[in-house]
């Protein structure tokens, strides 16, 4: 039987209860809850930027990784007073707006943060993400695939930032002007998806059924939609190596870096060095593409 240790942290004037700080959350990587909370604090200026005022889904691993887990959409009880929530489709979501909230969830062994792609109460996407999802547990061509997509976007005048999903995939993020709709982004996504699958039929697929995807990388342009979630930039993942969803430079992608080399134990250092690559990307001109695609359809 584990001895129960309980203490409190005071963060921004809020008291946060910490239980079992020595509990191993990623035993394989040697990360205890106390370490995790420290890493979350260091990640918070980056991570919170992409979770603030969004409907949060977390994945909790009460006994660490690997182990039982569950998706938490409804705000966990008891709900501390400093936590704001928003109701959407009868679910009371946590808004992950500050460090106290983050550490509170961290103490509950919430290891992954999957925010909605729009702000609470808004219908419009905050940014655009293309999700490249390999069918193989380890896909050596994932960076090559990301690079291809990045090049196609660039040929359309769109700069983007790739990020590891933290699991096996890569997401490609485009900063957008506010007011563009999910459906508009989907139409561009579908177009790019069809183009790259036609150009590289051995590499990409847009097949919806998993069993028919073979070993190809699924170009998921459907996941980016209202009510859905994708792993937030800088969220840790409940993988053995405590990987973190990490924005990359295109140069790193062309050097075929491995998604597993970005994890909780080295992310803080990397962020000190590289900063938030995403924040540096200005909104991209999608209007001309939309106009062209719309004109074509009629």
């Amino acid at each position: 039987m584990r001895k129960h240790i309980k203490g409190t942290l005071t963060i921004e004037g809020q008291e946060i209860v910490v239980t079992n700080p020595d509990k191993p959350l990623w035993p394989e990587a040697g990360i205890t809850k106390a370490m995790y909370l420290q890493k979350l604090a260091a990640l918070s200026p980056y991570l919170l930027r992409y979770t603030r005022n969004r409907l949060l889904t977390t994945i909790r691993y009460p006994h660490g990784v690997p182990g039982e887990s569950f998706y938490q959409k409804n705000a966990p009880e008891p709900l501390p007073l400093f936590v704001s929530t928003a109701i959407h489709d009868n679910i009371r979501y946590v808004l992950l707006n500050g460090l106290p909230e983050l550490l509170w969830l961290g103490n509950l062994a919430a290891l992954e943060f999957h925010p909605s792609l729009h702000l609470a109460g808004s219908l419009h996407p905050c940014e655009w993400m293309i999700d490249l999802d390999p069918s193989l547990p380890e896909e050596p061509r994932i960076m090559e695939a990301a690079f291809v997509v990045g090049e196609v976007l660039r040929s359309l005048g769109i700069e983007s930032v790739p990020k590891t999903s933290g699991a096996t995939g890569v997401q490609i993020i485009v900063t957008i002007e506010q007011g563009i709709t999910f459906d508009e982004l989907r139409s561009i996504g579908q177009f790019v998806a069809q183009y790259v699958t036609e150009k590289h039929p051995g590499l990409f697929t847009i097949e919806r059924l998993k069993k028919n995807r073979g070993n190809k990388i699924y170009f998921d342009y459907l996941q980016h939609y209202s009510g859905k979630t994708l792993a937030a930039p800088y969220t840790p993942r409940a993988r053995l190596g405590a990987t973190v969803s990490t924005p990359l430079t295109w140069e790193e992608v062309s050097q075929n870096v491995s998604p597993s080399s970005f994890h909780l134990l080295n992310i803080v250092e990397r962020l000190k060095d590289k900063g938030d690559l995403l924040e540096e990307l200005p909104p991209q001109p999608l209007e001309p593409i939309l106009r062209h695609l719309a004109g074509r359809k009629r």
Binding site: L156, G157, E159, F191, P288, I289, H292, R296
Partner: peptide
């Protein structure tokens, strides 16, 4: 069946035409 490759080429060309201000601020 819209030929997506042709469509892409046309789109790239039209975007290329207005490029200077779009890509190299």
């Amino acid at each position: 069946e819209t030929n997506v490759v042709d469509l892409m080429a046309a789109l790239q060309a039209s975007i290329e035409a207005v490029k200077p201000m779009a890509t190299d601020p």
